[in-house]
Design a protein around this nucleic acid. Structure first.
Length: 422
RNA sequence: GUGGGCGUAGCUCAGUUGGUUAGAGCGCCUGGUUGUGGUCCAGGAGGUCGGGGGUUCGAAUCCCCUCGUUCACCCCA
């Protein structure tokens, strides 16, 4: 094919109608549900001082090799990075503005990671999410998880499964990691070469391996939930009881460790069972009780989740739900007198709150009717010499079988409004 | 970063063991007498066969390189 001179950068894409309308509708639905629960929106910068993200963990791939970073034109230049996720930005904002806790916020927007694109993974991707800062009550964990669960249901998704685990805290995790590391070292020879490397770098992450040869060792590995201290164990028990009482089904997985180092206590993931590819996590999150402090703020507990919009839409495709919204044009104006009358009629309709569109270029009636049909508009308003002379338009039903009739131009808006209402 | 698949009209794809001006469907445009779409019919526009090099009398078809894309690993939404 004739290669275009420019194309969207690797891992990015143009979202065109009607998909763009669907994306917006999904975000709108999330906003509705989040605000119904008392969350307010935070719009934060698309890039931050790279230090904000370095706190995510020295062993996370997102930090070590997936950052889009750049120097600005200052003297000396400042080192920035496009945000690879939003939790860190939100914590930075909390430390900066010190809002009254608990701070319940939601967000949406693009994020950037420099990785190899594949099914359900892009270099620029969109997430919606919530964070609650300043509350360590396990009731918050339940509320947050339930909010995510409710959102998927609201979209019509049925094949979403919730997986939960507890990562412990600073007083219980180190001992567990020692136990786990000792176990994995004993079985080092049975692990894949890649997992052996992972073992030296971040033993927890070995539990996450999808490689078949690792499964036997992983299945028999000691699990974090068996090594929780009293406080973490109690916290986790309350969370589970809360999910049970809300009737939200879940499974516990000792292998769910998540990708960022900041997680403590509750972690969870929403898995889209309808997705065929390897990227089947449609959302995930957890508690991060030390992150705000790491970013220079006061010691502040926090919990939140991020849901992958691109993957959610793939899941909606797979399940055949959440179709694109219908076009908002109610009347397509066909003017065969030259086009200037369509100008006036469109303005009347729009001023009356009715979506209106028209053809350009003085095309034939047949051609204009074709465009009218394609537009998805339920009605066409036809203007010819006869109508102009009579101060009327011909209103034609494009979707039903009620035919067409001449009506006074002055009645057009009110007539169409009552027709569209029904 | 590593490995596999694929790159022919806007889209989905055919192109026989390499052989004359590269095809189909859909979409698009124009017609099918008086002002009418969604069905049907007839025309039409649109491609340097991703790019570069090589083999050959001759390459979309074979070889090499490159770019893009896609799937998977790593990791994540």
């Amino acid at each position: 094919m004739a290669e275009p001179t420019f194309r969207a950068p690797k891992g990015t894409r143009d979202i065109l109608p009607p998909d763009s309308g669907r994306l917006r509708a999904l975000i709108g639905e999330f906003a509705r549900i989040a605000e119904l629960s008392g969350f307010g929106e935070v719009v934060s910068p698309m890039f931050e001082d790279i230090g904000v993200f370095l706190r995510l963990g020295e062993t996370t791939d997102v930090v070590t090799k997936e950052m889009f970073d750049f120097l600005d034109k200052g003297d000396p230049p400042q080192h920035f990075a496009l945000r690879p996720e939003l939790t860190a930005s939100i914590c930075r904002a909390y430390a900066e503005h010190r809002p009254v806790p608990p701070w319940k916020i939601w967000y949406e927007g693009p994020q950037f990671r420099y990785e190899q694109p594949q099914a359900g993974r892009y270099r620029q991707f969109t997430q919606v999410g919530v964070e609650v800062l300043g509350a360590d009550d396990p009731q918050v964990d339940i509320d947050v998880i339930a909010l995510g669960w409710e959102f998927y249901a609201a979209l019509g998704l049925r094949q979403v499964e919730l997986v939960i685990n507890s990562m412990g805290d600073a007083s219980s995790r180190p001992a567990y990691i020692d136990t786990l590391t000792a176990y994995l070292r004993d079985h080092r020879d049975e692990l894949s070469a890649q997992s052996q490397v992972t073992l030296d770098r971040n033993p927890l992450r070995v539990l996450d391996s999808k490689r078949a040869e690792d499964q036997v060792v992983i299945d028999a590995a000691p699990s974090m939930v068996d090594h929780l201290n009293e406080e973490c164990g109690e916290h986790f028990a309350v969370v589970r009881a809360g999910l049970d009482s809300l009737g939200i089904p879940y499974s516990m997985s000792p292998r769910l460790v998540r990708g960022f180092d900041y997680y403590t206590k509750t972690v969870f993931e929403f898995v889209g069972e309808a997705l065929g590819g390897a990227q089947n996590a449609v959302g995930g999150g957890g508690r991060y009780d030390g992150l705000v402090e790491d970013l220079g703020g006061p010691a502040t507990p926090g919990i939140g989740f991020a849901l992958g919009v691109d993957r959610i839409l793939l899941a909606c495709d797979a399940e055949g739900v959440f179709a694109a919204p219908p076009p908002s044009v109610g009347v397509f104006v066909v003017d065969v007198t030259g086009g200037s009358h369509a100008l006036d009629v469109c303005q009347r309709l729009r001023a009356g709150g009715v979506g209106a569109d028209r053809a350009y270029g003085g095309r034939s009636m047949k051609a204009q009717m074709k465009v009218a049909d394609r537009s998805g508009a339920p009605y066409a308003a036809i203007i010819g010499e006869d109508e102009v002379a009579a101060g009327e338009v011909t209103l034609r039903d494009l979707r039903g079988d009620s035919g067409q009739r001449r009506i006074a131009l002055d009645d057009l808006v009110s007539d169409v409004r009552s027709l569209i209402q029904n």
